[in-house]
Write a protein that binds this DNA or RNA. Structure first.
Lengths: 230, 230
DNA sequence: CCAAAAGTGTTTGCGCTACACCCATGC
DNA sequence: GCATGGGTGTAGCGCAAACACTTTTGG
């Protein structure tokens, strides 16, 4: 191909986790280069013979060893020509969800340091990663209301109160417990188990499961997941 | 930058227009290369010193001379390594809307042939442009229901019946005229003019205008545009 | 017995849905 | 005067919103 172009293509992943009523993001400490010791999203350059999707998965694997529950393309950042001080780089950003309670960050092959940060207390970020993160957060908030992705931030079996808190926390809203429960249960996409989880205090609560297959089936029949708010 | 990467970055635009109750797409006939004489989306390679956004606008200008009413990034296609027979190319696709009635396609500088096609009668498309087009169409259909982008497909002043037909046609739904009108008017984002447009037959109909500024203001105050269907 | 969280029903009001008749114009 | 599309009002019903007390457990 006789096109003369000197633009590099990278992928970045915004990995969200949720624990103790806090939304967290996974960041990596840069070990080399101008931005050494700054924190950045998981990511790196795409190889010539891998798809974008393979590239993100590889980076996630190499840099953190994590397995994500949900992954989708978010946006491609290429409108700031100088977003990377090393040269012209565009970044295809992906948006990932993890049940982070089961996940221990590992310092891996590339031996960078990976760490969870509460989005309430973020460090300075390298490149335009703050912008990317804000974009991802908006997407998360929107998507929560029309797709059942909240479940991907919770353990397989979860308490209703945790689901409720997740929605309250991420959307900054107060929700009526009774109406919320009624609404979610009316969808018929979660199932009561016979197990109980426990908080420190109070009456023990049933554990619930998200029925993904049922959800997929209903979706094909025209069902639309949707949570409104007062 | 000592990264060895041989991936080219292109942009493509899916330009939708609407006339005579038909959704149309703007395509370009390829003049050179393996895909000579095949039809393709407007697009081309990004230059080193221009943003992605500038690149799409430049290509739109160069290849068609068109001015679009709406332009947003759609998706980045890079999961088929062989989507371009000339080598590894990823394409950042954009989604554009035009009031096509006022627009006459011009064969321009690059002297390729530009032409509107009804999406009901598309020719074979080059590359993975069929996939891109389908993605764009879904986005259009979704977005119509929660953002007032239908107006960007109509003239500045339009008939209510045209707006209604646009929704019916693009969403393949039947809509009750009275309820549709009531709903739209209740938003307070369109304005009656004192002019009349005319179809061939029947009683003349008032022309309406979309009040974009009012919409923006309302949006800041929490208003959400939303059209449901039976 | 007290504190803490879980679990549960009913009433009210708003908004979507369904539905049919008259009006203005051109020919 | 007839054909064609434009313009309008209402009644019922379903669903979301608002709202408070009882239950179970641990200490």
């Amino acid at each position: 191909m006789n096109i003369n172009q000197n633009i590099k293509v990278a992928v970045d992943a915004i990995v969200f986790g949720y624990s103790e009523n806090q939304l967290n993001v996974l960041l990596i400490k840069q070990k080399y280069g101008v931005l050494k010791n700054k924190w950045a999203l998981v990511g790196g350059f795409v190889k010539d013979n891998e798809t974008l999707f393979e590239a993100v998965n590889r980076e996630l694997q190499e840099e953190t060893g994590i397995t994500v529950n949900y992954l989708e393309q978010l946006f491609t950042f290429g409108d700031d020509i100088q977003r990377d001080p090393r040269g012209r780089v565009i970044s295809v950003a992906y948006f990932a969800l993890v049940n982070s309670t089961k996940f221990n960050v590992r310092a891996d092959s590339d031996a960078e340091e990976a760490q969870w940060f509460s989005i309430a207390a973020l460090p300075d970020l390298a490149f335009d990663h703050k912008l990317i993160l804000e974009t991802a957060l908006k997407r998360l908030q929107n998507k929560l209301t029309y797709q059942p992705i909240g479940f991907d931030l919770l353990p397989k079996e979860f308490l209703f109160s945790d689901l409720e808190n997740l929605y309250c926390t991420l959307l900054n809203k107060e929700i009526d417990r009774r109406n919320f429960r009624k609404k979610i249960l009316s969808f018929g996409i979660i199932e009561e188990t016979d197990k109980f989880g426990s908080k420190k205090n109070g009456r023990p609560a049933k554990l619930f499961k998200f029925k993904k297959l049922k959800y997929n089936k209903l979706t094909k029949e025209g069902f639309v997941f949707d949570i409104y708010f007062a």
